[in-house]
Nucleic acid binder design. Sequence first.
DNA 1: CTGAATATGTGAAATATTTAACAAATAGGC
DNA 2: GCCTATTTGTTAAATATTTCACATATTCAG
Lengths: 222, 222
Amino acid sequence: MVVNKLALSQATIKRIPVYYRTVKALQQSGVKRVRSDRLSKLVHIAPATIRRDFSNFGDLGRSGYGYSVDLLAEVFGELLEVHSEEQMLLVGCGNLGRALLTNNFRRNPDLSIVMGFDTDPSLIGTTIAGIPIYNLATLSEKIRPGMHTAIVCVPSSAQASVISQLEANGITAILTFAPKPVPAQPGTKIRYIDLTSELQALLFVDHQSKLVQEPKTPLKQS
Amino acid sequence: MVVNKLALSQATIKRIPVYYRTVKALQQSGVKRVRSDRLSKLVHIAPATIRRDFSNFGDLGRSGYGYSVDLLAEVFGELLEVHSEEQMLLVGCGNLGRALLTNNFRRNPDLSIVMGFDTDPSLIGTTIAGIPIYNLATLSEKIRPGMHTAIVCVPSSAQASVISQLEANGITAILTFAPKPVPAQPGTKIRYIDLTSELQALLFVDHQSKLVQEPKTPLKQS
DNA sequence: CTGAATATGTGAAATATTTAACAAATAGGC
DNA sequence: GCCTATTTGTTAAATATTTCACATATTCAG
């Protein structure tokens, strides 16, 4: 096996896709080399953090030169297994599901939603953006071997049931937009995207920062 | 001013909305008290972390009893300023924008998108889910005083320009789905939601965990 | 009212993550 | 080829966050 298990921190793992996207963009602009401080401005991550992250993957850089963009693209592409297309399924073809099906990660040729599932009879049998929508009850018939990944856009109330169905059918990686945590089987990785929480946390810090900046009702000019 | 500036960690801030949602749900089920270990199972956060988070807001709990659900709901609601409706605008009414307009945080009566902006002539002047869509060029005319928050669903290439327009019109909190970091003015808080990165990081950890679990091609049963 | 049971709040330890700072290595002009 | 300017990789320090463990406070049954 080519890839060894790396002891990467969670923080580093979350940054790998960001690095990958950025060096790919540089590569496509014809840039051949990049220094950690230049990259820092592009990704908003401190140069020292970038260098430390990169050092996990061997000595990628050269003192006094920087990093080869091509090499970085290759290394991160390998880590993310960009060489093989990940065929994913999506459950819940409401507004958000439809938006994701339509968008379908077109910028990333290695990510592709290939089928959708729903329980709404008016959707079953149709296609959205060319992707067929099946009855969720027929999941086990439609799923193809080698599919490990699902995107879940169902209401919180339906989520637990949907996720256990997915697990029963060999899905091990799930991205879900319903914020209700569910007990997952040991082998299953679930990532929750909680838009309301993100927004509320943003509003909270925005308001907090205004509390400090606000002038303390000055009685006189001075 | 009632609310004092609190020195909360970023980690704690991100959890406040989760706590709020959960205690609200408990409250609506008629639950009156909750212990940190019970809450832990609901939110998937360690009991000690919950207690430490809560201790930031004063002595909310009582030994041998737990926490009053009503009190928690009140405290977190106050922190998040749920009493006043946050009127937000959305820029970019493509697939994702349309999905968010249609959904419009209905579960949260205090969050509301009240207008959309786009540059596409075929959208300008229409409504989506009852929300009017205006020409982005007329932002300064349409925006209402007291609006501080925007959701951005435009392509990465348009993002920098859109964000500086928003800043020029008094927007200080921005949630965006375009992953390209932009230089923001000091007072502006920007939160990036990067779906592709989330998905790639998820796939990465899923694959990593399989590398360990995989049996090492056993030669014989034993 | 008493005492056993319970569950908080927190000091201290453990863990995770970022950042500073610099020796060592390389680049590239001359 | 030499020498100076760069820029890495990394050690050590700083910061951030989580978790343990338990003294203390409160509950509630009898």
